[in-house]
């Protein structure tokens, strides 16, 4: 039985009509970052783990897909697949090391490892260093869907996004997700019930890293570009902002947060306030943390619960 909730249905419908109302590349950017933030939120919101190195997975997905598609002429679907797998494997290694530590130490381990990945991408011959990889061909999906057509590209991105959305939703509402929530709520108790909590954290980390890689791979095809920006620690910070702004621990929060951040950035970077973009984002972050800690979706849910329940 396919059980689709009302909110998911609205999401699908909005996704389908969006390119006729908005500029498709803009919506694709939101979807890619939305997926990235949702993957990040799986760890922060549902296991209670703050990773400060998720840019490494976004970057890995992007570079691997970019390289395979451009240098070996691989088809886009396989390019995305291998980009995702590469990010997942890197996540397996990083995660194995990071889950041994908790709290701020976990965050620092992920940051340090992500910095290693960043310097690898900076130095490695195939990444183009500071210039990045440019002019990556979008190619033809499954051999017959030309992705150079912007609507074809858009619906491919939407499909990828909805797959990621489904997987995260399923993971949260699975037997595994129950254990994750138990770990988030009370780790010593979960341990004393016989759960090897580090193994559960590790699997969650791998799923999160893979989906972050999927977002990076897809984004690379959209913009035909893989650059250091995606692997930089700024990106790891930005995804924290997106998730907190939208509402961590909610299903739609990260998407809303990503949409808000991308919209603000796009709007500001064109105008005369472009130079102040970091200050404005910083202020938004401070206001969010001080005034509405549950984020946009979290506060909305509280409001609905208070007034319509």
């Amino acid at each position: 039985m396919l059980n689709i909730s009302k909110s998911t249905l609205i999401l699908v419908v909005l996704g389908l009509i969006a390119p006729y109302v908005l500029y498709p590349v803009f919506v694709m950017k939101i979807l890619c970052f939305g997926l990235f933030a949702m993957a990040f939120n799986l760890l922060l919101g549902y296991v209670g783990l703050l990773s400060f190195g998720h840019a490494a997975f976004l970057g890995t997905g992007g570079y691997v897909t970019g390289y395979l598609v451009m240098e070996t002429g691989l088809s886009p679907e396989l390019g995305i697949l291998f980009g995702t797998i590469a990010a997942g494997l890197l996540g397996a290694v990083f995660g194995k090391l990071a889950v041994k530590r908790e709290g701020i130490y976990f965050a620092m381990v992920t940051l340090a490892l992500a910095q290693l990945a960043f310097f690898f991408f900076l130095q490695a011959p195939f990444t183009g260093g500071e210039d990045g990889m440019q002019g990556i061909p979008r190619g033809t999906l499954f051999g017959f869907i030309d992705l150079n057509d912007s609507l074809n590209m858009y619906y491919t991105v939407l499909a990828v996004f909805l797959f990621g959305f489904w997987l995260i939703k399923r993971t949260i509402h699975s037997p595994f997700g129950q254990v994750l929530k138990a770990i988030r709520e009370n780790e010593p108790r979960a341990l004393s019930l016989g759960y090897n909590v580090n193994d559960y954290k590790w699997v969650a980390f791998i799923i999160s890293a893979s989906l972050a890689g999927l977002a990076g791979s897809t984004k690379t095809l959209v913009f035909q570009l893989a650059s250091l920006t995606d692997a930089h620690w700024h990106m790891s910070g930005e995804v924290v902002l997106m998730t907190l702004l939208g509402g961590m621990g909610t299903l739609f929060g990260p998407l809303v947060g990503a949409a808000s951040v991308v919209t603000i950035q796009n709007y500001l970077s064109g105008g005369e306030l472009g130079n102040y973009i970091h200050i404005i984002m910083g202020v938004i972050f401070v206001v969010c943390v001080l005034a509405f800690r549950s984020g946009i979706v979290g506060e909305f849910q509280k409001f609905m619960k208070k007034n319509f329940n």
Binding site: T171, P175, A182, N186
Partner: peptide, 27 residues
């Protein structure tokens, strides 16, 4: 030592769940 943001039932169920052997089944 409870899991505060799970329901009362879920608290007990998460303990029962372990023996089911499906605790890694995220799909």
């Amino acid at each position: 030592a409870v899991f505060p943001h799970l329901t009362v039932l879920e608290n007990v169920r998460v303990a029962l769940q372990r023996k089911e052997g499906n605790s890694f089944h995220f799909w």
